[in-house]
Structure formats: C-alpha cells, structure tokens
Design a protein around this nucleic acid. Structure first.
Lengths: 193, 193
DNA sequence: ATTTAAGTATGATCTGGATCATAAATTAAC
DNA sequence: GTTAATTTATGATCCAGATCATACTTAAAT
C-alpha cells in the first residue's frame, strides 16, 4: 500500500550495493527509508566491534522512522546485505504523508507495536534465559515469518548476532537441538520439523 | 493533553492498590490504561520466577496499547507498585480517539518510538556489554529522566531486574562505581555526582 | 516503640558460555 | 573448474557473574 503510493507518485529509488552503509550511529536523521527491493540489516556495534542485529528489513518494509520521529541521532548502522533499491523520503514529506493519510499513520502505529513486541520478547530472553532457550525462541520466531518454506535462511553467525551469543555456542546448540529431533540439519541448513 | 481530555470527558478512574495486577500475560487486550495518579511496573517473568522489568509507567503516561493494536495477547504482567488511579479506556474508544485526534495519533507514534529507543539500547547492552557497562548506561539513562533530583529512587533489585543481572552483582558494581567516584552513596541511596 | 520486612553488604564456590585454536565442508568468485 | 572466502564443526581452557550463605542496616507495619 505505502510502497505502491510512493511508486505511483514517481519517487525514484536510490541504489545501494551490498555492504553499503545507509546511515551510521550518531548521524542526525533527515529521512525515512522504504525498501523497494533488497534487504538491509540494522546493527549496533560495541567498542570491541561485536555486532548486534537490531532488525532485518526487506522489500516493502521501511526503517529509520523512530529516530526521525523523536529527533534523536541514530543508534545503529543500517547496512545493505544485498544490492537494494531504496526510496529515500525526506522528513517533511514523511510527516506530510502521516498527516494526510490517517490510514498510513495507523499502519505505522501497528508496525511500531510489532517491533516493540519483538524487542520485548528478546529482552526477556537476553535478560533471563539460557542459550538454548534463546535459540529455540529465536528460531520459532523466524520460522513463523516464513510459513511456506521449511528452511531457515540465516547463518549461525546471524543467530549469534541476534541472540547475544557466540557462533560456537550457537553451532553447538543447534547440533544439540538436531540430536533432540527438534529440527533437522541438511548440509548445515536448519530445516523445520 | 491526553489525560486532560479524558478527565474533561468525565472518564472515571479505577482504583488499584499496591500490588494489584492490572493484566497478565496471555490475556487478550481489550483496553488501554491511562495513569491518573500512581505508578505501575510492566514485567515479564520466566519459568524460574525471575522478573524482568520491561518498563515503568507513572502518572500521565499510558500503557497496554501495543498488544491491543496488534491484537495479540499480552506478554507481560502489569502491576501497581503503589496505589493508583487508572483510567481504563476500551479498545473501541481508543481507536476512536486515534481516528478523531490526529495530534494524539502523532503523540502515540512518538511515544512508541521512544520506547523502541530504550529497548534497542537495552538490547545492545544485554547482548554485548558486561555488567559494569550495563549498570553505567542504565543509571545514566535513569538520571536523565529526573534532571531536578540528585538521588535515584530505585533499589538494587530493580536495577538488577532491568539489566538482567543479580542483586549481588549490582550491589558490588555500585560499590565499585562509588569507589571510583562515579557516583556517591548516602545511606545506600545512589546520588549523582 | 518494637517487631517485621525489605534492602544492602560481603565472602566463597561454582558454572555456562566465552575464548582460543584448528580443521573440514559449503558457497562464492574468478 | 579451481581458488578463495565463508560457514560449520569440535576440542580445551578460562573467567565473569551466578549461586549460596550469612549478617547488617534501613524502612515499613502494627
């Protein structure tokens, strides 16, 4: 719906190549980003260079609004994980869209609520649960998102970066879950059971 | 603004006593809660009974919208931490408010964005940072909220429940921060320096 | 004013997951 | 199709923070 609106109104997408940084922490937000095609990851990086994946966004989704809306510098990097076409909508235009399209405004509220749900869930996991529980929850969540496919297209490293664990730990746990027949491994890929 | 609107329109608050549970995880959301007076804490509880504080809400704030907006069962308990007057606004009325008051809708978007910011910050901390860093960040954040007062009115247990650490660990770290003159302790209370 | 409860304090021990190291298997690039 | 780069795999060691135990201090009930 919203992407359609943007396309219909002849917004031209910018092209980002795999690995390109769309914005960095500390930068002042001036726009909202609608993904026409491609995929990005939003990551915070600590002093040791360890990444934490705050979110993954794909085509027909948008990102970067919260910082713009509260007018605070970005906390995270947003990086294209593959070549992507992204429509960059200037702040004023975005606010205008919100004002003139109450249904879009409502949609945004729901989107933000969804993200809050995910973050609340992960906070609980990181605060209170052990590695195995975290990975179980995360995998269940990721599978819910792709009901048609049986295979998860995430690496162990990505799971680690989403759960605050280390690759080795994730690898060991997935192996264990596979031994316990909670999932299947085919050539390293995680298959739902 | 919003509370004023509700009061002007003669909404009657419900009374909750300290310790009362306003809603529980699993329950289907039917309302949004505006705090007239008092304070509540929103907590998730794991299988071992360990609490994680997802948020604290005080007078003139509201809570419970995300679950209503995405129409999913609550994830957390919300519990009055002191006697509170709370205006319970039914779902339909809340949606009506959103429709009829675009400025309120905009305010909500900003509120949700703020909460996302906080949760992103804490996720990064819990995923990547050690105990001392977590407590430093959390204390700085809490102090920012009360610019006038010099004393933090949170217990070590609350800090533990917000940071995913144990009381003993929090106590030791605060002692250390005090030794390093990063804060002052007066009768156990944390004072800004 | 006293009892009771909640919060702070500190030492000793234990452990889950990090870290380090090394190699095999997949996938991507040329 | 071969080389290079990721990703997966597995063992050995280490350590931050959890856990357990016990005591003291401050605040809240009665």
């Amino acid at each position: 719906m919203t992407i359609k609106y943007l396309l219909d109104n002849s917004y031209k997408p910018s092209l980002y190549k795999k690995g390109d940084v769309i914005y960095e922490p500390g930068a002042q937000p001036r726009a909202v980003y609608f993904i026409k095609t491609g995929k990005v990851r939003m990551v915070t990086v600590n002093d040791d260079g360890k990444e934490f994946i705050q979110g993954i966004f794909k085509s027909n989704e948008y990102f970067g609004e919260p910082a713009l809306l509260v007018n605070k510098p970005y906390l995270a990097y947003t990086i294209a994980t593959q070549d992507s076409e992204i429509i960059v909508v200037k702040g004023e235009e975005f606010f205008k869209m919100l004002k003139e399209h109450p249904d879009f405004s409502m949609k945004l509220i729901q989107t933000l609520s969804h993200r809050l749900f995910y973050k609340s869930m992960m906070l609980e996991e990181l605060a209170n649960e052990h590695a195995e529980h975290r990975i179980r929850t995360l995998i269940a969540y990721l599978f819910k998102d792709v009901e048609h496919t049986q295979e998860l297209k995430v690496t162990r490293q990505q799971l680690a970066d989403m759960s605050g664990l280390r690759v080795e730990t994730v690898i060991r746990i997935i192996k264990k879950l596979s031994d316990q027949k909670e999932l299947k491994l085919v050539r390293g890929k995680i298959i739902r059971i």
